[in-house]
Nucleic acid binder design. Structure first.
Length: 797
DNA sequence: TTAGGGTTAG
């Protein structure tokens, strides 16, 4: 400032009055000098003013940055964004901070948008920018964007940066590209503990517990000591491979590393023992700890539910509250599977009400767990109600509802939700497909089932074992055994469900011998059969009348595999004894059964009695069914048919009168046939098809054919007072529709919603003989393959 | 300023 004042005072001295008269040249030089001084003086004033301004701005910027850092560290996204907007100068440091706050708070799309803006404005992204941008790509599950960022790293020379590579490993694992994660990890010039932990965690993200555990070993071989993050991941990996032995090894490592008091490690230990089916060890670890926190109680609640101890789960919640700890929403999420296991709707509703009272709802995970629980408690309407009231839905909530509706016979509603899900922009995954496929084989045609197969290919999940297992079963249930076998053969990693599906497929198509040979092959491949495998194998024996083999498998199940027979296994054995007419042994088996007798069991005896025209035994079985359920329509229909077949018309009328008085209506028979890209449905005596005239003419010709002696005389026809209705049963119309619409010699596949009647069964044999066609009829129980006048069921169904 | 975590739905 002093220099400025001195300059100004010297400027005052230089005036025209002071210029010497005779020294014009000197004066001119003098003036020039003064001009220079004047210019310099102004210049200096300007610079100084700028310096002051810059200094003030700098102080303000530092203050703004300090505030911004505090917003970022406290996760105040809105404040951080507002301050960012107000800032005139934004260095890459500032951009990094805002991208970081967005990423760390789950605003992945917004973080990527900001990164794009940063690049557009020419601000250079640095080694601090990329870890957050890569994390955002992983958060969005956007592998395409992730690869774009990865490509840029090569251009800017940051492709081998330690922290950036650590981020890339997790990003690639999150989007399921574990091979890329491995490549990044392998090519890293330097790795730290985080690199190893990221790779270990990465394998868990793709459900590869084995590789994760191998990585833990390799890490130690490279002289890296596991920390709490390594241990937590290793315990998770152990749960994935379900190995208590491996879990105990990690437990020893926990003790060696003195990490057993760490809350996260402690919870992970409890979770691991619970998930590996060793709840006793979980209890020991739990009881040994002095400081029990909410997460530990929650892990125990879940553990009991997973191990089929629902009452202990409830006790755990009560004890937790008695210990002065408040249950949280996770406690309820973990408790809900126990509610469905107990099967008490009252307790389920109580938990639901408690969640509302505590203000835990709406919550996307808790709501989804409630949908699942109501589905398993056979309350699809309540499941739908919870879904409708959700504020936010995702793929899992949609899939859970589809399962809940499908499992409870609400097929149309399940399909509606499936299509709504698509229109709402949710892309189905393997679990969704597994949930919807049973709905397809229950109500849809083979054509529609094939469309779903096409979707599976388009979705890129055609190598998923769960999906392929469901497709195998779908094809078999839709009547296409060849495609079922093709899908099964294409499963690279066949699990026990794959084998169960194909064994059951051949069983329901009447090829029991192939089923049992597949069962032998399965065992040779080292796959252990489970309870469901034996249901499939015993069904095979039943449909093919293999009595001795059936008893052998029934014994093998218990002796060699330690599987106690359940009601389904007994049902299969009864069907088998009924098929060969050994009704006395069937009765004996029922009396020796150590289980509560169900209508399914008595139904098997009733069916066998009807097949062998044993009216007395049928009436006994019917009485037993009536004592369990009074509105079993099938029972009355079966009994009525038996009375008609044995000429007991008075009893037929009596049964019909009971049905009318109880308002029980026989299921309307429907048969579906696929012709090109259309599915045609026929009712009995249906005339809705545009070529009905032709269909009826063809049927008349077939029925009048000299092969007519194949069709037995049925007393039931007398009851129909010479009506032609039996001649025009839906299955015959559908098959004739197939005959006139498909190339000569090609097979015809139709599906019925009820059992095929004996009359139609004979007509089908005749059509296959005189038309030289293979006719496949799927009824509500099995598929009949008619060829050369014979049926695969050999007359028993 | 940098990366990673437990008990949570199909």
């Amino acid at each position: 400032m002093a220099a400025i004042l001195s300059l100004i005072s010297s400027f005052k001295l230089v005036t025209n009055e002071n210029i010497p008269q005779k020294g014009a040249k000197r004066a001119s030089e003098f003036i020039k000098q003064y001009d220079n001084i004047k210019h310099k003086a102004f210049s200096s004033v300007r610079t100084t003013k700028l310096q002051v301004k810059t200094s003030i701005e700098k102080t303000s910027l530092i203050r703004q940055m300090k505030v911004l850092v505090s917003y970022v560290e406290s996760g105040s996204v809105d404040n951080a964004l507002q301050l960012f907007d107000e800032m005139d100068k934004r260095s890459s440091f500032v951009w990094n901070l805002v991208i970081r706050v967005l990423t760390n708070n789950g605003f992945f799309v917004e973080a990527l948008d900001l990164y794009d803006q940063m690049c557009f404005k020419g601000v250079r992204a640095d080694k601090f920018t990329f870890p957050f941008v890569i994390k955002a790509c992983g958060g969005c599950l956007d592998v395409f964007e992730g690869q774009k960022v990865h490509a840029k790293l090569f251009i800017v020379g940051l492709d081998l940066d330690l922290h950036i590579c650590n981020s890339l490993i997790l990003m690639y694992a999150k989007v399921g590209c574990i091979e890329f994660a491995e490549k990044v990890f392998d090519e890293m010039p330097v790795r730290d503990l985080v690199s190893w932990n990221s790779m270990i965690q990465g394998y868990i993200l793709v459900n590869d517990g084995l590789s994760s555990l191998e990585c833990v070993c390799k890490m130690q071989q490279h002289n890296f000591q596991p920390d709490r993050f390594t241990i937590v991941s290793a315990l998770h990996a152990t749960s994935l491979v379900c190995s208590v032995l491996k879990g105990k090894e990690i437990h020893a490592l926990v003790i060696k590393s003195k990490l057993q008091c760490n809350e996260m490690v402690h919870t992970s230990l409890l979770d691991m023992y619970g998930k590996c089916g060793n709840i006793c060890y979980a209890e020991r670890v739990f009881n040994m700890s002095s400081c029990i926190h909410v997460a530990a109680w929650n892990a125990m609640i879940r553990g009991y539910a997973l191990n089929g101890q629902p009452f202990e789960s409830f006790t755990c919640l009560r004890k937790m509250q008695e210990n002065g700890l408040k249950s949280d929403y996770v406690s309820l999420i973990n408790l809900l599977p126990s509610c469905s296991q107990v099967g008490s709707l009252l307790s389920s509703k109580t938990v639901h009400a408690y969640a509302i009272r505590m203000g835990f709802l709406p919550h996307i995970v808790l709501d989804t767990a409630l949908i699942d629980m109501y589905g398993k408690c056979s309350e699809p309407k309540l499941a739908k109600l919870v879904f409708d009231q959700m504020h936010q839905r995702n793929l899992i909530s949609h899939t859970t509802l589809i399962s809940a509706l499908g499992q409870n016979g609400q097929y149309r509603d399940a399909l509606r939700i499936f299509f709504d899900m698509w229109s709402d922009g949710f892309k189905a995954d393997a679990m969704t497909i597994t949930a919807i496929l049973p709905v397809y084989y229950e109500i849809a045609s083979l054509r529609e089932g094939k469309q779903i197969h096409g979707y599976v290919v388009k979705l890129g999940i055609c190598s998923n074992t769960y999906v392929l297992n469901s497709l195998t079963y779908m094809y078999s249930r839709c009547g296409d055994l060849v495609s079922a076998r093709d899908v099964f053969d294409g499963i690279l990693l066949k699990d026990v469900i794959s084998w169960n599906s194909i064994i059951m497929a051949y069983a329901i198509h009447g090829y029991g011998e192939i089923s049992v040979s597949l069962f032998s092959e399965m065992k040779k491949k080292g796959v252990n059969p489970n309870s469901s495998t034996f249901v499939s194998v015993l069904t095979s024996c039943s449909v093919s009348g293999m009595v001795e083999e059936g008893w052998n498998y029934f014994t093998e199940m218990k002796i060699e595999h330690g599987i106690d027979p359940c009601i389904e296994h007994y049902g299969c054995m009864l069907d088998l004894l009924g098929r060969v007419g050994d009704l006395n042994k069937a009765k004996e088996l029922i009396t020796k059964m150590p289980l509560e007798l169900t209508s399914r069991i008595w139904g098997s005896l009733l069916a066998a009695s009807r097949q062998h025209k044993d009216v007395e035994l049928a009436e006994f079985a019917a009485k037993q069914i009536l004592s369990i359920e009074s509105d079993n329509t099938g029972l009355y229909v079966l009994l009525s048919n038996l009375y008609a077949e044995t000429g007991r018309w008075e009893d037929v009328r009596r049964v019909k009168s009971i049905m009318e008085s109880q308002n029980l209506k026989k299921t309307v028979g429907l048969t579906m046939v696929d012709i090109k890209d259309k599915t045609f449905k026929f009712k009995d005596q249906d005339r809705s098809h545009e070529h009905s005239y032709l269909i009826y003419n063809v049927l008349d010709i077939i029925l009048k054919d000299p092969y007519n002696n194949l069709i037995k005389f049925k007393p039931v026809d007398l009851l129909k007072k010479k009506s032609k209705s039996a001649d025009w049963h839906s299955v015959r119309l559908a098959v004739c529709c197939g005959l006139i619409s498909t190339p000569i010699g090609s097979p015809i596949l139709v599906r019925k919603n009820v059992r095929i009647c004996e009359d139609c069964h004979d007509v089908m044999k005749k059509i296959s003989l005189i038309c030289h066609r293979k006719i496949i009829v799927g009824d509500s129980k099995i598929f009949h393959h008619f060829e050369h006048g014979q049926c695969s069921c050999r007359g028993y169904w």
